[in-house]
């Protein structure tokens, strides 16, 4: 039974990694949001499984929170934003997609290499997935760097948060509930602020391209 659940968690982890790569390669904003929603759903499933295995009821609560926030509320908000801003067009990247993917592979190798000694110390059922979670964090970071549109940067940020959450679950059966609630609130507030920011950006430059605000310094 334990082994089966372990395999299940590994499966969800690999789905998570695959989704990270998909997001890195995805050009369309609408699809990007859908992928993000899928990532959230995977996270919910993985958290629930870990909760079942370890009999930790607070993990169910955090799974429910994730479901509510990252699968329902935030994707809905993002969809609304891009509908209102009319930004369904293709994403322009600063580095071309194949190069980004190659960089991503390097990052994954690095992350696995890094996580190896840590996961050997851990006794968690999901210890093998720490490397994947770390790789997910780095890939999301890479996505934030390489995208030039504000919406995709926000999605990169959220996806990074997802992967961090997964890392916490897999390494230590989740953070204390108070911390999780705090983070959830932070993410929600962050989304609201970034939404306002995007509207402002659009109003000012008639575009969501962050290259318009490159004058962040005095000459």
């Amino acid at each position: 039974m334990q082994g089966m659940f372990g395999q299940l968690i590994n499966l969800f982890a690999s789905v998570l990694l695959l989704l990270s790569f998909a997001m890195l390669a995805q050009r369309r904003v609408v699809t990007l949001i859908d992928l993000f929603m899928l990532q959230g759903a995977t996270l919910v499933a993985a958290t629930t499984v870990v909760g079942v295995v370890t009999h930790q009821p607070h993990l169910y609560l955090s799974a429910a929170l994730t479901l509510l926030l990252k699968v329902a509320l935030i994707p809905w908000l993002l969809h609304r934003v891009i509908r209102q801003l009319n930004v369904r067009w293709d994403v322009e990247t600063l580095i071309n997609i194949p190069t980004t993917l190659l960089l991503g592979i390097v990052l994954v190798i690095f992350a696995f290499n890094l996580a190896l000694p840590i996961s050997q110390l851990s006794s968690s059922v999901a210890r093998g997935t720490l490397g994947i979670a770390l790789a997910g964090v780095l890939l999301s970071f890479l996505m934030m760097i390489t995208r030039s549109k504000a919406v995709s940067q926000v999605i990169g940020f959220l996806s990074m948060e997802n992967c961090l959450f997964f890392a916490a679950t897999s390494a230590t059966y989740g953070m204390p509930l108070v911390v999780e609630l705090g983070i959830a609130l932070d993410v929600l507030v962050g989304i609201l602020i970034l939404g306002v920011f995007m509207f402002q950006l659009r109003e000012r430059f008639d575009s969501l391209d962050i290259r318009h605000i490159e004058k962040l310094k005095e000459d």
């Binding site: 690095f110 940067q153 004058k215 962040l216």
Partner: peptide
């Protein structure tokens, strides 16, 4: 260092993160 581009600033954080992780490793 102050390039005025968000992507570059993100890159700084990224490189720092990777470097620190390597240090830990």
């Amino acid at each position: 260092l102050q390039q005025g581009r968000i992507a570059v600033y993100l890159l700084y954080s990224f490189v720092t993160l990777v470097a620190v992780l390597m240090l830990v490793r």
